[in-house]
Amino acid sequence: MATGGRRGAAAAPLLVAVAALLLGAAGHLYPGEVCPGMDIRNNLTRLHELENCSVIEGHLQILLMFKTRPEDFRDLSFPKLIMITDYLLLFRVYGLESLKDLFPNLTVIRGSRLFFNYALVIFEMVHLKELGLYNLMNITRGSVRIEKNNELCYLATIDWSRILDSVEDNYIVLNKDDNEECGDICPGTAKGKTNCPATVINGQFVERCWTHSHCQKVCPTICKSHGCTAEGLCCHSECLGNCSQPDDPTKCVACRNFYLDGRCVETCPPPYYHFQDWRCVNFSFCQDLHHKCKNSRRQGCHQYVIHNNKCIPECPSGYTMNSSNLLCTPCLGPCPKVCHLLEGEKTIDSVTSAQELRGCTVINGSLIINIRGGNNLAAELEANLGLIEEISGYLKIRRSYALVSLSFFRKLRLIRGETLEIGNYSFYALDNQNLRQLWDWSKHNLTITQGKLFFHYNPKLCLSEIHKMEEVSGTKGRQERNDIALKTNGDQASCENELLKFSYIRTSFDKI
């Protein structure tokens, strides 16, 4: 039985969820670079991206490699990797027998973001014989899940209580170790020597080791999670996991709180800001991140802002960003909400898709409305799209047979046209069989910064309504002859009103 693990408890099935942008060198404390989270699957090609990484700022997932063999891993080693800020997950990587050479110096898994409450997941690794993470000293947050690894031993010899604050939620089941077939031998045991430290858990006094050649490092209890030197002297209180010299914040392997210019500090002093819960960055760093993602459509890219001495992905609820200094300031009234469309555009074809934009005031991208039916549609669209004030790209209304009016965009005031449909149009209306009105132009103002209007096959939309939009939106004169079809717009509506004058002759039985 794995020490510190839980057996036999019912657990939810383990679901495996399925960018080499360097964020800056980590400095003297770390020998390499800070790398983003990685999802490495199918083959070993991307694994080489770990070569210079000291910190993975995010998670590391290595999974679904069915053609790899043990010899493929023999020359692979990433000794610079010290810390993973989120979680480490391995799933069905064939041929991998140990992690001792792959990650010989991995010391800390912070667990800032977890995989279903777990910071370390080893699942269905069919050839893994031992973990071998002999320098792993601290899992700051989260638990361990090690399950269905039929060859995995050296679990009962690990004292997880020396690595985690609590072992109650560890789930370590259905491994070879369960069948008591392992016969784990710690260093020196074969020669009758006791080389590794022994600890007591559940009444068992057991030597602690990761492999037959690597003991588990056990520091004096007084050192807590700070770690200790090879001689057993406690590291500085700002260290986490390990250090090369005692009581020196510049000799830590990793930091308990924050890293700044080669030393570990309790908090980031001005003019620095907390970033990702582990390091200090200056304003320029946060500003660069903001600008890199301002026009990016890459998933996970955030326009970072500053709030409460932190550089964070977005302002919290009730705050909006001051564009001059990136500071989050309290909103006066309802907060603006910028919604970034991942692929640059979004099609609204149902109430469900409209709900995804609920509360958005600025759309960074283009909207395509293609709704053919739905219950209580006008009210639903207004509830979900009615706060949109600005669209950076274009607005396209296409084959939306259920629409009679666009009044559900009740606050839309600006279409920038930074991206144009077919390279020309910022407003595009095609084949809307029941569209009769755009907006009530006596109450609604709309500016279209650039781009043209396109109207074709809107049989109940009168040309007068379209011409009014040209005047109000500032697009009059931009359109070419064929942009607004004269014969297919309003051709099934009563669009022309003329005053009919009647004269009559009164007659009676005795007068003409």
Rank of each mutant, 00 (worst) to 15 (best):
His28Thr: 10
Pro31Ala: 06
Gly32Ile: 15
Glu33Arg: 11
Val34Lys: 08
Gly37Asn: 06
Asn42Cys: 09
Asn43Met: 12
Thr45Ala: 06
Leu47Ser: 13
Leu50Tyr: 10
Leu50Trp: 11
Asn52Leu: 07
Cys53Asp: 00
Cys53Phe: 00
Val55Asp: 00
Glu57Trp: 02
Glu57Val: 07
Gly58Thr: 01
His59Asp: 09
Phe66Pro: 03
Phe66Arg: 01
Pro70Val: 14
Pro70Asn: 09
Asp72Lys: 03
Asp72Ala: 08
Asp72Asn: 14
Asp75Val: 11
Leu76Phe: 07
Leu76Val: 15
Leu81Lys: 00
Ile84Met: 02
Thr85Met: 09
Thr85His: 07
Leu89Ile: 15
Leu90Ala: 11
Val93Thr: 14
Ser98Pro: 00
Leu99Thr: 07
Lys100His: 01
Asp101Leu: 14
Leu102Trp: 10
Leu102Ser: 01
Pro104Thr: 02
Leu106Val: 03
Thr107Gly: 14
Thr107Phe: 04
Val108Asn: 15
Val108Phe: 03
Arg110Asp: 02
Ser112Ile: 12
Arg113Gly: 11
Phe116Gly: 02
Asn117Lys: 03
Tyr118Pro: 00
Ala119Cys: 04
Val121Asn: 04
Ile122Cys: 08
Ile122Lys: 00
Glu124Asn: 05
Leu128Lys: 00
Leu131Phe: 02
Gly132Ala: 10
Asn135Tyr: 03
Asn138Ala: 14
Ile139Lys: 00
Arg141Lys: 03
Arg145Gly: 02
Asn149Ile: 00
Leu152Ile: 08
Cys153Ile: 00
Ala156Ile: 13
Thr157Phe: 01
Ile158Asp: 02
Trp160Ala: 00
Ser166His: 04
Asp169Val: 06
Asn170Asp: 07
Ile172His: 05
Leu174Val: 12
Asp178Leu: 08
Gly183Tyr: 13
Thr189Gln: 13
Ala190Phe: 08
Lys191Asp: 15
Cys196Phe: 03
Ala198His: 06
Thr199Ala: 07
Thr199Ile: 07
Thr199Asp: 03
Val200Cys: 06
Asn202Lys: 04
Asn202Asp: 12
Asn202Ile: 03
Gly203Arg: 08
Val206Thr: 07
Glu207Gln: 09
Trp210Arg: 01
Trp210Ile: 03
Ser213Gly: 07
Ser213Val: 06
Ser213His: 12
Lys217His: 06
Val218Cys: 10
Thr221Glu: 15
Cys223Ser: 01
Cys223Val: 00
Ser225Tyr: 11
His226Cys: 15
His226Ser: 05
Cys228Tyr: 04
Cys228Met: 01
Thr229Val: 10
Ala230Arg: 15
Ala230Trp: 11
Glu231Asn: 10
Leu233Phe: 05
Cys234Val: 00
Ser237Met: 08
Cys239Trp: 00
Cys239Asp: 00
Leu240Ala: 12
Asn242Thr: 12
Asn242Ala: 11
Ser244Ile: 07
Asp248Phe: 03
Asp248Lys: 08
Val253Gln: 05
Cys255Leu: 00
Arg256Ala: 07
Phe258Pro: 01
Leu260Phe: 12
Asp261Phe: 06
Cys268Leu: 01
Cys268Gly: 00
Pro269Arg: 15
Pro271Tyr: 12
Phe275Asn: 08
Cys280Gln: 01
Cys286Arg: 00
Cys286Trp: 00
Gln287Lys: 06
Leu289Ser: 14
Cys293Asp: 03
Arg297Thr: 12
Arg297Ile: 11
Gln299His: 11
Gly300Ala: 06
Gly300Gln: 13
Gly300His: 06
His302Asp: 15
Tyr304Ser: 03
Asn309Ile: 06
Lys310Trp: 14
Lys310Gln: 13
Ile312Gln: 13
Pro313Asp: 09
Pro313Thr: 15
Cys315Asn: 06
Cys315Arg: 01
Ser317Gln: 06
Gly318Val: 08
Tyr319Pro: 01
Thr320Gln: 11
Met321Gln: 14
Asn322Tyr: 12
Thr329Asn: 08
Thr329Gln: 13
Pro334Arg: 15
Cys335Gly: 02
